[in-house]
């Protein structure tokens, strides 16, 4: 099936479950990578992706191509699901601090760990913007919709995050691209 995401979603809204499976195969990996780069937690990432697709099924008629792309809609669901789970986990952690442990880096190369460390040094808000912009090729307008923040805030966070990373990595500013 080489249909667009929106066409597949339309078929799913009309009852075609194969279309949903196709959408899952297309977006399982990108959504997992997005959540993982934000949280570094395998289990949480899988959980969020599964919950996102469950919500997509429950609210399938809420989506309309006039409102935007399906990719944006899916990332929006995943992001808000992630935030809910993180907030819930933080509440339990305050009451029972021994419950959760910080994710541990397992057998990554030095370069990967360096980049991972760099991303973790950003604020949660900056990290989300960087991951969506650099890894998922989303426009700033789409990012604003996903994160439910103004476009100006997206630009500002991107700029601040890039400046911070350039400084940490010792990259001289040449005024290009940011």
């Amino acid at each position: 099936m080489n249909l667009t995401d929106e066409k597949l979603m339309e078929k799913f809204q009309n009852g075609d479950t194969e279309a949903l499976n196709e959408l899952y195969e297309r977006y399982r990996a990108p959504l997992f990578r997005f959540i993982y780069r934000c949280t570094r937690d395998d289990q949480l990432s899988m959980d969020v992706v599964q919950d996102a697709f469950l919500k997509l099924q429950q609210k399938k008629h809420y989506f309309s191509p006039e409102k935007g792309r399906l990719k944006t809609y899916l990332f929006q669901i995943a992001y808000h699901t992630m935030i809910s789970k993180i907030n819930m986990r933080a509440r339990w952690h305050r009451l029972l601090p021994f419950l959760y442990k910080e994710p541990v880096n397992i057998s990554r190369s030095d370069e990967k760990m360096e980049v991972e460390r760099m991303l973790q040094s950003l604020s949660n808000e900056q990290r989300a913007v960087i991951v969506l912009f650099y890894y998922h090729d989303l426009s700033q307008k789409d990012i604003a919709r996903i994160l439910n923040i103004p476009l100006g805030t997206v630009k500002s966070r991107l700029h601040q995050a890039v400046q911070k990373m350039r400084k940490e990595w010792g990259i001289e500013s040449d005024g290009k691209g940011s």
């Binding site: 780069r37 980049v115 760099m118 991303l119 912009f133 890894y135 700033q140 630009k155 691209g177 940011s178």
Partner: peptide, 20 residues
């Protein structure tokens, strides 16, 4: 807004394997 090329190059080193 264009991507910062150097930052983009560095960030691309962080690949993530996706479990099944």
């Amino acid at each position: 807004m264009e991507k910062d090329r150097e930052i983009d190059k560095l960030l691309k080193k962080y690949t993530v394997e996706v479990p099944d």
